[in-house]
Amino acid sequence: MIQDQKVQLQFAEHAGRLNDGLPGSHAGESLNLLAQAGWLGLGVPESLGGGGGRLLDVVEAIAAVSEQCLTSGFVFWCQRAFIEYLAASDNRWLQAEILPQALKAELSGATGLSNAMKHLAGIEQLRLEARLDAETVTLNGFLPWASNLRPKQFAVAIAAQTSSGRSLVVAVPASAQGLKRGEDLQLLGLQASWTSTLSLEQVKLSHTWIISDAAQTFLAKIRPAFVLMQCGLALGIARRSLNETLQSINGGNEQALINHLRHNTVTLAQLEAQVWQLGIVSTFTLAQVRQLFELRIALTRLALDTVWLELEAKGGSAYFKPSGTARRLREVAFLPVLTPSLVQLETELQRHRAMEQVA
């Protein structure tokens, strides 16, 4: 997908700085690079200013970036997920005014839909409240976690519920009065991903900022793309880590590691085939959504396993903090908790199985 070696090197060169959040390092470097290359428009219809193509192209691009730097891959996913919401909306104003800015990375797109995805899965209630008037929507509440919140230059997609039970998806610009971004959260890795809290107190916006006035339907519609694009994160790390392990095999460790390495290599090939199969689907059936959840779980567990195997293969030198292996250990630890987390995915799959047994 991404063949430009110079671009690949640029992501690799700042991977450590972005993961550790060193002074002067921020996700904007990666977003600008992605925008200049046109990769933020992959899978977006040309009629909306994108580059066309399929969702599979997006997954492979996110994987290629994540091979070099998961922080860059993650903010790529955040930006592209926000773009997906706008592209899937019926709101022409957002598509004409905000989508071009997101495609050019002139503003960062944040997805504050963690709570909403849990709500869709029946795990928790919506945290944010909305009041709809004739011309405005007023929002209140608190989000404990959102990423890609470029200071003063972001728009975040959130879901909120009215007192009557109606739920909305709204894009909230950083300039909105009553919106407060907290300090960057202190994370194990991905420190430069602009991850923070958001407080909304009487945030009043015109209806032009409403992405969808039927959140349940809209979220169910975009969730497959939301999850499938996340698969690129684990796919990239698994590919890179397997390659690093292969290069570290020698006469002294081959017998101890080769069977595990072969197993992971075969597993990766099988999961890649599923990614390619689902990456060309336009409308997901319930069975395909379940397959997608299982795929996301399997890829994440494979990524975790491959990095641990890489550590075994490289030995003590890989345990030094500046090493690429140590960085990948911190990066991959994020994937099980990325919403929907492995626990949330497993819980929803179990719920579906229970419903089938009752039926």
Rank of each mutant, 00 (worst) to 15 (best):
Q8P: 00
Q8K: 12
L9D: 12
L9P: 00
Q10T: 00
Q10M: 06
Q10Y: 00
Q10F: 01
F11V: 02
F11A: 04
A12Q: 10
A12G: 01
E13W: 03
E13G: 01
E13F: 02
E13L: 10
E13T: 06
H14D: 06
A15P: 05
G16P: 00
G16Q: 12
G16R: 06
R17T: 03
L18E: 14
N19P: 04
N19Q: 13
N19S: 14
D20N: 07
D20H: 07
G21V: 03
G21T: 02
G21Q: 06
G21P: 04
L22R: 11
L22H: 07
L22A: 13
P23A: 11
P23N: 09
P23W: 08
P23Q: 10
P23S: 11
G24I: 09
G24M: 12
G24L: 12
G24T: 07
G24R: 10
S25A: 15
S25P: 02
S25E: 13
H26R: 13
H26M: 09
H26G: 14
H26I: 03
H26V: 03
H26E: 12
A27W: 00
G28Y: 10
G28Q: 11
E29A: 09
E29D: 13
E29Q: 12
S30N: 09
S30K: 04
L31W: 05
L31D: 05
L31I: 04
N32F: 11
N32A: 14
L33T: 15
L34F: 10
Q36D: 15
Q36M: 10
Q36K: 15
A37T: 10
A37V: 02
A37L: 07
A37I: 00
A37D: 02
